[in-house]
Computed example of a mutant assay.
Amino acid sequence: MQPLEFSNGTVFSEGRHIYTISAAPGHRVYGERTPVVDGKEYREWNPNRSKLAAYIANGGKVLPIGKCSNVLYLGASSGTTPSHVSDMASEGKVYCVEFAPRMFRELVGNCSPRPNMMPILADATKPSEYQFVVGSADVVYEDVAQKNQADILADNMEVFGARYGMVAVKARSEDVAEAPKAVFRRAEERLKERGMRILDARSLEPFEDSHEMIVVEKA
């Protein structure tokens, strides 16, 4: 397996397959393959099940999550992608915010073997609800399917002092009638208005329809 060009040193490729080094060997989250190479357990990362993996599979090169990063993950769902973020930030923390109680129950179970993953039942549009738990973050990652996705990211970055942000913009959640490209451009412009510099903006098709990953740095 050869490492991709990411500084965290935990994302690897083998042909078209993507892997992270498991931070919790022996534990699968969604039935993923876990080959062992040179004594290390790797977890195959399915881009059809993860927008962040789709971004990497589509050539995304800006991944500001390092080994010691504290990551605020908004819209953690059951914890599939957050578990791979947990692998990358193996010496940091991954604060997993999820609003839906049913998904939160699954998230709690997936966090249990991973001491660096912290499940938080809260609304991502109200960072004051979990500010006392998180304190600060280096990176905010957002996968929240609702309106004003750019502002949700910017608000959380400001509250938690994050330098970097990633948001998987779902066009249909912003406006079902408007062309996705117009939605994406508006989200990018809004992030610039909020003091962000766009580091990368990349379609997630064919893995995710009408989605774009935007990576930003606080200017």
Results as ranks from 00 to 15, higher is better:
Asp123Met: 08
Ser77Leu: 14
Ser77Gln: 05
Leu74Lys: 06
Glu217Ser: 02
Gly66Gln: 12
Ser77Tyr: 10
Gly9Met: 11
Ala179Glu: 12
Lys61Asn: 04
Pro206Ala: 12
Leu72Ala: 01
Lys67Trp: 13
Ser203Glu: 15
Tyr73Asp: 08
Asp175His: 03
Leu52Gly: 08
Pro206Ser: 08
Val215Gln: 01
Arg33Gly: 01
Glu106Val: 00
Val183Asp: 04
Lys67Asp: 14
Cys68Tyr: 14
Arg43Phe: 09
Phe132Gln: 15
Leu153Gly: 03
Asp200Gly: 04
Thr125Ile: 04
Phe132Asn: 15
Phe104Met: 10
Ser90Met: 13
Glu32Pro: 12
Thr81Phe: 12
Ala24Trp: 06
Ala168Leu: 08
Ala201Val: 01
Phe6Tyr: 15
Arg197His: 06
Thr81Pro: 06
Leu199Asn: 00
Glu98Ile: 11
Pro115Trp: 02
Ala182Gly: 00
Arg16Ser: 13
Val94Lys: 02
Gly31Glu: 03
Asp151Pro: 00
Asp143Tyr: 14
Ser7Pro: 04
Met166Thr: 10
Ala168His: 15
Val133Trp: 13
Val159Asn: 06
Gly15Tyr: 08
Glu32Lys: 03
Arg33Trp: 11
Gln2Met: 14
Ala100Asp: 06
Ala177Trp: 04
Lys93Leu: 01
Ile120Gly: 05
Tyr164Trp: 06
Pro47Lys: 08
Gly135Tyr: 03
Leu153Val: 10
Val134Leu: 03
Leu191Ala: 10
Lys93Gln: 12
Gly92Cys: 03
Ile198Asp: 08
Asp87His: 07
Lys181Arg: 11
Gly15Pro: 10
Gly39Asp: 09
Gln146Phe: 00
Gly60Gln: 13
Ala100Leu: 14
Arg102Cys: 01
Lys147Met: 03
Asn8Gln: 14
Glu205His: 11
Phe6Ile: 12
Ala54Ile: 07
Ser50Pro: 08
Ser203His: 08
Glu91Ser: 14
His84Thr: 06
Arg172Asp: 11
Val167Cys: 04
Leu72Phe: 00
Val11Arg: 07
Lys192Phe: 07
Val144His: 08
Ile18Met: 11
Arg186Tyr: 05
Val167Phe: 01
Ser50Leu: 12
Ala201Gly: 15
Ile56Asn: 03
Asn110Ala: 07
Asp200Ser: 11
Val140Pro: 01
Asp155His: 04
Gly109Tyr: 07
Gly59His: 14
